[in-house]
């Protein structure tokens, strides 16, 4: 499909090149971007402090030395958020469903879900990591791991599940009640209605905001360093302290950005695919 055909009026903003039509528009966009960037780069390069900043943040030799170490430490970040994301997807859905349970008998569960989301959205992430990282192992519970890695991931799961549960809830509430009526009228139980009809539609609708939360989570994986594990940010701090140069921070920043971009494009693709499947060629 050409760029033009993809950009109907209903295709708002999910693509960077979304509203460009024809070669003339693309040419203008390229020229405008080049001029814009040139102005910014010239302003920075000609500033009084640029030579020192360049030396402190953009030292090619130090970048080359620290990048492999930071990259190795970054694998710990990847492990942290990969594990956390999978657990969050499940836990948050459970909380969202608890919150939507009907009837007076189930009130305690609804209350629990509300208290949970209020609590963990309210406390700063960094505090939750400190409290769990230093407090939970001190309880000396048998059978519960005491590693800072475990408690760091747990803290992130608790905080982000509260956010993601709200995202799920918004999605579930956006599915029209007539869908539930149709499913129930066929004899499906409430649980099966949720599982086969409501949740699949809700999840499709919340993929973009869900991804947004996950990008936040990826960045916050650096906070786990505060209770001990040496991930990319902590590794770059060590390198900075050894070289008296900030370039390792730039290497870390680059790694986080490189990870975010494919995730954002993946979401765009998922949303576009769903839209194509369900409504392209509709009446």
């Amino acid at each position: 499909m050409s760029v033009d055909a993809e950009t109907g009026p209903g295709n708002r903003g999910s693509r960077i090149l979304g509203d460009l039509r024809g070669t003339r528009d693309v040419g203008i966009a390229v020229a405008s971007t080049v001029v814009f960037l040139a102005v910014i780069v010239l302003a920075i390069v000609n500033s009084a402090g640029w030579p020192e900043v360049r030396q402190a943040f953009f030292d090619r030799g130090i970048f080359g030395d620290s990048f492999p170490e930071v990259l190795r430490a970054f694998l710990l970040n990847v492990r942290i958020f990969c594990i956390a994301e999978v657990v969050i997807l499940v836990v948050a859905l459970g909380i969202a469903i608890l919150r939507g349970l009907p009837g007076p008998v189930l009130f305690p569960f609804r209350l629990l879900a509300v208290v949970y989301t209020d609590l963990f959205r309210g406390i700063p992430t960094i505090l939750v990591i400190y409290i769990l990282g230093f407090g939970a192992p001190a309880l000396q519970l048998s059978g519960v791991p005491r590693s800072p890695f475990f408690w760091g991931v747990t803290a992130l799961v608790l905080v982000y599940s509260a956010y993601v549960a709200e995202v799920y809830r918004a999605g579930i509430e956006s599915v029209h009640p007539s869908q539930e009526a149709a499913a129930r009228s066929l004899g499906l139980s409430r649980a099966k209605t949720l599982r086969f009809v409501i949740v699949p539609q809700a999840v499709r609708r919340v993929i973009p905001p869900l991804l947004n939360d996950f990008i936040g989570l990826q960045k916050d994986s650096a906070l786990v360093a505060l209770i001990g594990p040496i991930e990319a940010f902590r590794q770059s701090q060590i390198d900075v302290a050894a070289t008296f140069n900030y370039t390792p921070y730039m290497a870390t920043a680059l790694l986080f950005v490189l990870l975010t971009i494919p995730l954002a494009r993946l979401t765009d693709w998922l949303v576009a695919r769903d839209r194509r499947r369900q409504s392209a060629g509709a009446r």
Binding site: S178, A182, S185, L186, G187, L188, S189, P200, Q201, R204
Partner: peptide, 29 residues
């Protein structure tokens, strides 16, 4: 649910499941 198995209803606004193909709409229940 046992009653609804015996009594079918069709709505004014169709209420098909938009995320399922026609066949799956019919075979779900």
């Amino acid at each position: 649910n046992a009653v609804r198995r015996r009594v079918g209803i069709v709505f004014q606004a169709f209420n098909l499941f938009p995320h399922m193909r026609v066949l799956r709409n019919v075979t779900l229940a």
